[in-house]
Amino acid sequence: MNELQQLNESHGLLLVFVNVLLEQIGLPVPAYPTLIVTGALAMQSKPLLGAGVLVAMFACLIADTLWYFAGKRYGGVLLKSICKISLSQDTCIRQGLNVYDRVGPRAMLLSKFLPGAGALVTTVAGMNATPFALFMRYSLAGSFIWAGSALLLGMLFTDAIIPLLGWLTGYLPLAIGSVLLALGLFIGWKYWKRRRLMKRTSKVPRITVPQLLALRDTDDMPLIIDVRPKFHTAVVEGIPGALSISLEEPLDPWLDQLSDVDMVFYCACPNELSAALLAEKLRARGLTRGKALIGGLDAWREAHPDQDIPGQAATA
């Protein structure tokens, strides 16, 4: 245990900086446990506590600033890249945009407590052209809350953590095996949930972009509905003339308007999941004439980037 204390005193701040920076950049190397251990060990060297908070905040600020400017420049393309490594990639973009749409930059106050959410929220802040000074304030505040809470937990439970660290030092292979087993079970559970959702939504009828375009200027032209969050529709232009109904808003105001029309739903998400979910919700209310656009907005742009569809209502 003395060796661990000496290591913390000599290289603890460097370890905190590297671990936090790598996690906030997006690598799967959790830094919160490191901060908790640092807080517990620092009770015997209290100047490390204040330094630990500052170092962690500095590492967070570097990563947040990189994501902010990357989001400002690359926007939706970067969001998709972030969500490709998510265990819930089908809902990752929608959830990130919805959170920022509801609470704005205040989302950065707590986003670091959720794996991957820190990068997602700061990227959306850049996409939304949040003023940099405002972004900095919330980034620093969120970093302080996140890092400070971990160090405080370590301080409060130091009497339990120090003996545990001593036990883990003696049974390191068992400890590593337990962590890997827990991680494997978590990943398996998330994968099972995703497959179950995909199987359920696969029952929603689909339509391709060429099939949709073949219906234009005919009596069978469906109403096109943009399922993306309101914030995303304001930032990234969708199919011209589409009606905007996000997945989270109440459906009651729309039921009369949609009761006797064919509908095509589209989103900007993997497997057109949000579109299928809205179609599923409407089917539960008795509106069964809806289909999800295969490939969503990306497929539309690839097939006909300048193509317009006339005759759509922009508002309810």
Rank of each mutant, 00 (worst) to 15 (best):
R206L: 14
D262S: 15
R283M: 10
P270N: 06
N271E: 14
M221N: 07
I225R: 04
V204D: 02
A150W: 13
R206G: 10
K291I: 00
V261N: 07
S274N: 13
K190A: 09
I187N: 07
T201F: 11
E248H: 10
L168Y: 01
L183M: 12
E237K: 13
E272S: 15
R200S: 02
W254T: 01
D256C: 03
G238F: 03
D256M: 09
L278I: 04
L287E: 09
K203F: 12
I225M: 03
V209L: 09
T158C: 10
M221P: 01
I225Q: 02
F186C: 05
W189M: 13
A160S: 11
L255Q: 12
I176Y: 08
K230L: 14
P222H: 00
A268L: 09
E249D: 06
K291D: 04
L282C: 04
G241M: 06
W167K: 07
A160I: 10
G286P: 09
L197Y: 01
R216Q: 15
A268T: 10
D220Y: 04
A276Y: 00
K193R: 12
L180P: 01
L243I: 09
P173S: 06
L215R: 14
L172N: 07
L151W: 08
L183E: 06
P210C: 06
V179Y: 08
P240H: 11
E248V: 11
D220A: 13
I245M: 05
P210K: 04
D260F: 03
W254G: 00
